[in-house]
Amino acid sequence: MSEHGTTLNIEKFGSASEAKALSAEADDWTLIIRPQTGWFDLHLADLWRYRDLVTMFVRRDFVSFYKQTVLGPLWFVLQPLLTTLTFTIIFGNLAKISTDGLPKILFYMSGITAWNYFGECLTKTSDTFNANASIFGKVYFPRLSVPISIVISNLIKFAIQFGLFLVFYFYFLFRGSNIQPNSMLLMLPVLLLLMAGLGLGSGIIVSSLTTRYRDLRFLVQFGTQLLMYSTPVIFPLSSIPEQYRWIMIANPMTPLIETFRYAFLGTGTVSWGMLGYSAVATLVIMTVGILLFNRVEKTFMDTV
């Protein structure tokens, strides 16, 4: 390519002897930059060091969201409310899909609240590389801090929607509806953790793949929608014929939604085996996601 193309240049500032003495003396380098490192070189310690950045991102996402919209945080409440209403009318009253004998509003709202958390985590994290290309091109920080902050910001949104759900929930509870809160409520943090993990894992898998396949981006919205219909959000798992039920159960979100609903309402299909399967699937998807993401983040800037 050039007349200097293959010449090896080793230049030293300062005397060579000094440098030699040093290289023998010390190996206390604080940072080593190498080519595409191994699959398992994850720099997770770095991520911990940048934990303040994660909180700053969370704050930024939240503040900028409510500052930019007229209705502000009201949107967080309005969206599930309208969706619940739509589902109640269309699926509940017109299509008359079973809700396992539960109050329709609570049935749909519990599904939507839980699903929204997962869905938002998935769609938002799946855009990590595209949405942050300009920052990623200028400064290094552990890239994983972005999707992790997204998962946490969504937790705030979830808390608000969950509060809304609780309002309806207690209303129905005091009116004496046929609902039985039970000990599965203790699993709530675990369920949230698994949903966050699943959303994050699949989101970063998609985001890693979109750096190579741009058209995948457009599939995400649609894919998430499709996934929702293969999860018992608008119908109970029990309404699916026995021979097809395995398709639903293969979806790791299914046990999470069913358990979430069961914990509050007391009806649903729940088993520890299914939950265990979800946990393992989450772990696998997370691991694959982190490995892929880590792989892509090093050379992502070369492809934009």
Binding site: D28, R34, P35, T37, G137, V139
Partner: peptide
């Protein structure tokens, strides 16, 4: 490469101390 925005294809960089890189 020094800013760790992208990885090198071959070779290595060793750094001692806190590094701040202002590309912008």
């Amino acid at each position: 490469i020094l800013s760790r925005v992208t990885a090198p294809t071959t070779g290595e960089v060793r750094v001692k101390g806190r590094i701040a890189s202002l590309l912008e």
